[in-house]
């Protein structure tokens, strides 16, 4: 199990990438910051970076305005 933004629990599976996680969550907004256990994941590494089990994942959407 991993935790998203200190609130949402998501079932972990082996090989889960950041991009797969974002797709599953339908996080489609382009301005985001992703960290895993406090470490920043660069945007161009989402496809390759895997998420470890029990990770503390933060996905911060940089949108303060509609």
């Amino acid at each position: 199990m991993i935790t998203i933004n200190k609130r949402q629990q998501v079932t972990w599976y082996a090989g889960m990438t950041v991009q797969a996680l974002l797709d599953a969550l339908k996080y489609s907004y382009p301005h985001i910051i992703v960290t895993i256990n406090g470490d920043l994941v660069k945007h161009d590494a989402y496809e390759q970076t895997t998420v470890p089990d029990e990770a503390d994942v933060r996905v911060i959407h940089l949108i303060a305005g509609g």
Partner: peptide, 9 residues
């Protein structure tokens, strides 16, 4: 407009 800061982040 704070929905993302509050609800998502």
């Amino acid at each position: 407009w704070l929905i993302f800061m509050d609800q998502v982040n």
